[in-house]
Amino acid sequence: MRYALYLGCAIPIKYPGFEAATRLVCERVGIELVDLPFSCCPPPTSMKLVHYDSWLALAARNLCLAEEAGLDLLTLCSGCVNTLKEANHILKQSDSKRRKVNRILEDHKHQFNGTIKVTHILDVLYQDSVVERLLKERVRDVPLRIGCHYGCHYFRPPKIMYPQELSDAESYVPVSMDHLLSIIGVEPVEYSRKFLCCGSPLGANMDQDAGYEITRQKLGHIRDRNIQALSVVCPSCFEQFDMGQIVLGRKTKEKEKIPTFYLTQLIGLALGLSSKDVGLDVHRVKAKKLLESIEVA
């Protein structure tokens, strides 16, 4: 199994620990990753809102690099997967948009042909063959009550992100992370507003206090279910919960903070990697006590 690894911006720059954990986990389960000179995706929360044509052209360039290497593109972030899947979809559907983008990209020897798929690390790990491998390689359980937060852009709009999974109401909410984590001994816990926003885009673009208020409300529902930790598949959601609890703590004086993990960090722990290996040492809300309680170093 071979993929072009699309790192995006936030993971390699702000949270390289997630990258390290992902590379180690992929190596253990037999997924080969190829690095290519990608740029920013660009985000569905910034460039797309300001200049749609630029958003589509830069996304197309990233897709072209993977096409040229003949590899499907593996993303690690809900924002990146949203942009790249949607751009791939649009450029395959619309002859006029594809022609327009290709006219610009041809000056740099790229041409969008629509030959590859865009996927996300969660979906790659959730494939049957990888799950079998994970079951074989797993050396310990991570028996924690965990709330999964998928991040809106990971699965919405479902007609573009997961067209094969649509319900009769043409809607869809994912279960993959809950299922995947249960095979490493996690107890996935449901909570109210599970599939709603973490608050990040509102804070990043407009109003930080309003963004964190969304986070505070969501954390309230998470606390109601005695959830011990969160699992995310997006660096922006991660920052909103990890950094967000520090910022919110200054106002709310809430002492009990809930650690957040990036998915591959939890999988890495189950495969026998240390907290340092998977980069947990740089999280703002420390998971040390929690991990000691289940004898993970």
């Binding site: 390289p16 620990g17 000179p37 920013c40 200049h51 044509d53 052209a57 830069l58």
Partner: peptide, 28 residues
Amino acid sequence: HHGLSPLPAAPVEELRDILKKTGRDEVI
């Protein structure tokens, strides 16, 4: 610190040229 090699620079000249041609510069 995380055992990773430096991140290669992005191809900025190419990106700027693409942005110029898409008309981004006229907006911002």
